Amino acid sequence: MPISLTREHDGRVARVGFDNAGRGNAFDDHALRELVAAMQAAAAEPACAVVRLDMAGRHFCGGWDTSSFAGLAGATAESVAAGLRDSDTQLGRIRDLPVPVVAAVRGRVIGFGAGLLAALHLPIAGQNARLTLPEVRFGFAPAGVGFTIARRLPRPQAYALLTGVTEATAADLLGWGLVARVVADDDLDAAVDEVVAALAAVPGDTLRGVVGVVEASLATGSPERAYEISAATITSREVHA
């Protein structure tokens, strides 16, 4: 599936495209690794301040490609668990990017797509976006996605979603903190354009500093690293220019 990388706003915006629209933007191991590598390469450019992730077609993510399930025949629990850990490690690399990732969330977000969504920094949803977790219909319990949902949602709603009893609306995703905004579907691309342009206008490495403050604060529960990052931005030469 094609993965593209282009740069805009004098290199401050890296635009990464993922196109497996024929299968609803479903993932397998190879596709996930390729996407993560492209996003890491984009953020590694010193001029880059924000990554824009464009998921092609009508749906944000169709989950894990069910055609890969045949490969699980005869697999041990240990090898399957290792594969699940690896996919979550890949998502963690998106979460750990030094610049924010902005994306439009439209249509369906299925299964693994919830993990991808949670790894992004500034996802913006169309009002008709829907999240479903169909794993139980295949006879297994969600792993990393289950962990993410259990940590982010109220307990009864986590059970309802993980057992397939209900689906989440865009308003639910906003209320649970899984998206930053909800806009009319027809306005989604324009809303993403607006956010990306605003971020691209932030001077210097400030956005990298903001990402560092947020992620260090969440990881440690302490403001100490935030003091250091903020001080570095305050005393940088660009502040005095």
Rank of each mutant, 00 (worst) to 15 (best):
R130T: 14
V136H: 10
D19P: 12
G74M: 06
R12W: 02
T163S: 15
H121I: 00
L174W: 04
A168P: 07
L117R: 01
E167C: 12
P154W: 07
A232H: 09
E194Y: 04
A158S: 15
L162S: 04
R52L: 08
R155I: 13
A43H: 05
S79A: 12
L84S: 10
Y159T: 14
G144S: 07
G22Q: 12
N25D: 09
A170G: 07
L162M: 13
Y227P: 02
A226G: 01
Q40W: 00
A37H: 09
L178S: 08
A47K: 11
W176Q: 06
V213S: 00
A42S: 10
V145F: 09
F18G: 01
L120D: 04
Q40I: 06
F138E: 14
S87N: 15
I94D: 08
G113M: 00
S87K: 14
R12C: 05
I229G: 05
H121P: 06
G164E: 00
G74L: 05
W176N: 02
L133A: 03
D193I: 03
R137G: 14
L53T: 04
R208P: 03
T148A: 08
R155G: 02
R108A: 13
T235Y: 09
Y227T: 14
A232I: 00
E228Q: 13
T89E: 14
G63T: 05
Q127R: 15
D185R: 01
V183C: 04
G83R: 08
D65N: 11
S87E: 14
R152G: 01
F112M: 03
A143T: 06
L218I: 02
P142C: 11
D86P: 00
S67I: 05
G139K: 11
I110F: 04
R52E: 15
D96R: 11
D205E: 13
A184H: 12
A75Y: 07
L122A: 09
V202F: 06
T163W: 06
F18A: 05
R152D: 11
G57H: 03
E228H: 09
L35R: 01
E238S: 14
T233K: 12
